[in-house]
Write a protein that binds this DNA or RNA. Structure first.
Lengths: 322, 322
DNA sequence: GAGACAGTATAAATTTTTCTTATAATGCGC
DNA sequence: GCGCATTATAAGAAAAATTTATACTGTCTC
């Protein structure tokens, strides 16, 4: 097909793996019930498209080149994913699953793990909790790999989902107490350029939001270190560096007021992080509503007071939503 | 090709996405510079292969079916991965990259985050830390998405890597203090069958090791809840349930001796978890050796004493390796 | 409600891609 | 060096994909 300018196609990968697994093109041909030249020409075409050789033809049995080794690792996963997608799409018509799998943003993992677990005991036969990055949760939610998400809502565009806003909190600047915090955008730019900037992983929604915020202010900061988890960011700042983070992330990381780091509002337009419960529409009856109400109550009764103690200057900017 | 019995190919996905993005088959055809029937027939073939319709033809512009929506989410990622793989394979010949990206197993994130960050400041221009699951780190390591891994070594079969064993610790049983711990395998089976079993995610190496261990003992436990992170497992056990975990995981989770949970050796052959530093061979000169020595020193000086205090009965079974 | 226009489906013809057949060249064990 | 298995490659055949032609359908405007 002249349509797709693709580096390879999946059937080529299947052939490639057959050669890897069988040790020769001839044996692969026998296994796949085609002729040897079909295999030889397919491999040659694949190599041509990728611009590198995948097998060392000078030895018997064929040896993989380093590039071939890498492709082999990836090929298995890609072909598995293809079958998984096809199967998942067909299963979409078969109805609900007998367990609940949820994705929870990492900064709520500690704050709410016990609550969630407790809440679920009488309501769900089996609970599976995926903590950490929520970047891929939209897809996982839609393909039924998970059933609900508690995190930064990245899915405004996606229909078929129900959303319950839970909590809103401000982003803030975390800095060493001997420093003077910036009062405007220009000072912020200088400030961030003068010290190591420790940021959240760009794989996370939080990291991406912060990056977009800085870009909007035309602040281009070379980051020094980057971490997936709130603790990594916090721990590194205690040593050296500054960061943009949130009260919940700091609470998650174990922040204390005598740790040598202070929090300061960002000298810029309001910049908040909002956490939302998201589920697929009409799949769990009342359950999502009950869960949302429960989570809001927990945030109000347990989390807000703790945050208010740690971050009194930001209390007005944090709220449980409804 | 008669070779590959695949549910779809990548060029079909490209066509599918073009229709999604352009809102009609005719517009997609124009965008891809082919005729409309080529698009129509490709989509029809794709639907036929997947066994489901992807578009609702009764409305204009075309609407996606739920299955179509799911496939759309996946298609982007798959095509992106294909290009990434092809690019990565070509970049393999261009030499090293100017930054260090490491994957760290979640139970070491707190214990070593500050140490690692500190160690890296003078040695690496830029550091990116991916905490959490290490399941996919083998591939990431080989394809240069990350440069080293600290975790449970899943990569015995993979050549081209260097390994430095770091630490070994026993798995143990975590249970409520009012219970009597099991003394043999049969009692363990009864014990685990009587209470909610809280386990680590099967996506993690730790979770998989525990599952294999139980299978080897012919112990089939219906788990009640499953968590990615050590804290989730620990917090839930504090509420209700038992778990198999390790001293490091408990340390990570913030275990204290007055939490109402006790630790007991597993009544079975020695079952240990081993943490290893893995890097690609000959890429960073002395650096991996220095890092391994440094990590061992940190484990010996900082982590072992803390673990010894928390878990005195297991001190003999924990050791820094060399 | 009718007409115009754009879009979709489908059959047949054409083009492109992939596979097979045939054969020469090469690796490797004895 | 010989024999056997494997790989590469050219040419022909078969299969797949695209184009051309045309009928049918959705939607907007009058």
């Amino acid at each position: 097909m002249a349509i797709a300018d693709l580096p390879f196609d999946l059937s080529s990968l299947t052939v490639f793996l057959a050669v890897c697994d069988n040790g020769s093109m001839a044996a692969a041909a026998r296994a796949l019930k085609v002729t040897q030249p079909a295999i030889s020409q397919t491999i040659a075409d694949l190599e041509n498209r990728l611009g590198t050789t995948l097998f060392d033809r000078n030895v018997r049995p064929l040896a993989l080149t380093p590039s071939g080794t890498v492709l082999r690792q990836y090929a298995q996963g890609m072909l598995a994913e293809v079958r998984l997608v096809a199967t998942g799409i067909q299963k979409m018509r078969l109805g609900r699953v007998p367990q609940l799998r949820m994705g929870v943003v990492d900064s709520l993992a500690r704050a709410l793990s016990t609550s969630i677990s407790d809440f679920m005991y009488e309501r769900v036969g089996r609970l599976i909790v995926h903590a950490g990055l929520t970047e891929t949760h939209a897809t996982a939610l839609l393909t039924r790999q998970i059933d609900c998400v508690i995190g930064v809502d990245e899915m405004e565009d996606v229909s078929g989902l129900e959303r319950w806003p839970l909590f809103e909190e401000p982003y803030l600047l975390l800095y060493p107490e001997q420093e003077t915090p910036p009062r405007d955008t220009q000072e912020l730019r200088d400030f961030l350029g003068r010290q190591p900037f420790i940021r959240f992983s760009q794989r996370s929604r939080t990291g991406a939001e912060i990056e977009r915020f800085l870009r909007r202010l035309r602040i281009d900061v070379p980051f020094q270190q980057e971490f997936d988890l709130p603790y990594g960011v916090y721990a590194t700042c205690r040593n050296r560096g500054v960061a943009i983070t949130t009260p919940l992330c700091l609470y998650e990381a174990g922040y204390t007021q005598d740790c040598g780091l202070l929090c300061h509002p960002l000298p810029a337009p309001a910049f908040h992080r909002r956490l939302t419960l998201v589920v697929r529409r009409r799949e769990f009856g009342r359950f999502p509503l009950d869960l949302a109400l429960f989570l809001r109550e927990q945030l109000k009764q347990e989390v807000m007071p703790a945050l208010g103690t740690l971050f009194p200057a930001f209390v007005q900017q944090m709220r449980v939503l409804n």
